[in-house]
Amino acid sequence: MATFELKEALPPPSSTAGPIGWIRANLLSSPLNIVLTLLGVYLVITFLPPLLDWAIFSADFTGKTQDACVSGGACWTFIINRLPFFTYGFYPEPERWRVNIGFILLAAVIVPQFIKAFPAKQWIGLFGLTGLPILVAILLSGGIFGLESVPTDKWGGLMLTLVLSYVGIVAALPIGVVLALGRRSQMPIVRMVCTTFIELWRGVPLISVLFMASVMLPLFLPEGVSFDKLLRALIGITMFQSAYMAEVIRGGLQAIPRGQYEAASALGLGYWRSMGLVILPQALKLVIPGIVNTFISLFKDTTLVLIIGLFDILQTVNSSIVDPSWNNVAKEGYVFAAFSFWIFCFSMSRYSQALERKLHTGHKR
């Protein structure tokens, strides 16, 4: 009787595994991919060396004035010298430690969310949504606890951009949830009010909202009553983004099968408990990409506040590149502003992808 001997499985062919296999599968898998790969290599060889030469190898990094930029490359000396203005705006220099503490607190809230095994990060996140905005507002504004009062017209740069975007994000999400639930309500008055609010704010550009908040709103207030310009901008941005957030969340609510609503009712859950425990958790998981996309859009739209006289990071760059003491530094200024926005937007995008994988948003089987 013949006997059979089990042998160890052979390794996969070298052409289908490792770097060679990855290149064949992703870059050379079809004639079109081969052409696109060759085109990409050509573009990299053509444009990357001069770009690196301008940005790094021939760039100037030291000095105090325009005269220090003599190599013909990027004048990063301009960015280094104006970095405090790009970061703090007109905030008084002796009080900038308060802004630094705000940055540290923001990092202490955000960074743990990227660390999978970080302890108590849920409570840290909850503090970031509730206590952090209040604490930072007290720090930056002052006027109490012995802190010198700093008016908001002194705020600017990256600090102002983060304040506008963070407050807008924290406020727009819960308001958007309420509006989405209201638009799907069985009560006609509630549904009509929420629908009117959403369509009104989505029907006008943000630049018009900011103009209205800055110029028209004071005309409707009683004599002697005024709102801070920054507060008006925050209200306008929050209401505008809440309308878009509501539609994103409504899409998630409509994607939940009817059986989930019936199952919640069968368990004896009321409307708010069924929404909070059954429906909303599933709906929010489904629309994580849409929610983060709205957050990224909000972050970039904060640049529009320059039209009402607020100096965000882009406006501080704009005002610096026209300084007569610095010439031909527009490229460096705009590259710095673009890179700053890219860092924050890319971080939000990566976090949303990690959150999707963690929560299995795609419901993969």
Rank of each mutant, 00 (worst) to 15 (best):
G176A: 09
V225Q: 02
S29D: 05
L28K: 00
L129V: 10
R98K: 09
A266D: 04
K331N: 10
I296Y: 01
T3E: 13
S274K: 13
A243E: 13
A330C: 02
D153Q: 02
G224R: 02
L314K: 10
D53K: 11
G268N: 06
F86C: 05
V190H: 05
E332P: 06
D53L: 10
E148C: 01
L221C: 03
G63T: 06
L39A: 15
L217G: 07
I249T: 12
I115H: 01
V177I: 15
S319A: 10
F346I: 00
F344K: 02
S319I: 00
T195K: 08
W155N: 02
V136I: 15
S208L: 10
F299C: 07
Y351K: 01
I56H: 01
F299V: 08
S347R: 00
V109E: 03
F103W: 08
G182Y: 01
A233V: 04
Y271A: 07
S71F: 12
R82I: 05
L158S: 03
L231M: 13
Q241R: 03
L27V: 01
G236H: 05
A137D: 06
G18Y: 08
V317T: 10
A17S: 15
D67R: 12
V170P: 11
W272R: 11
D301W: 07
L304F: 13
V44F: 13
A246Q: 04
L83Q: 06
I34S: 09
S340K: 00
G182W: 04
V209R: 04
P19Y: 07
C69S: 11
G236M: 05
W97G: 10
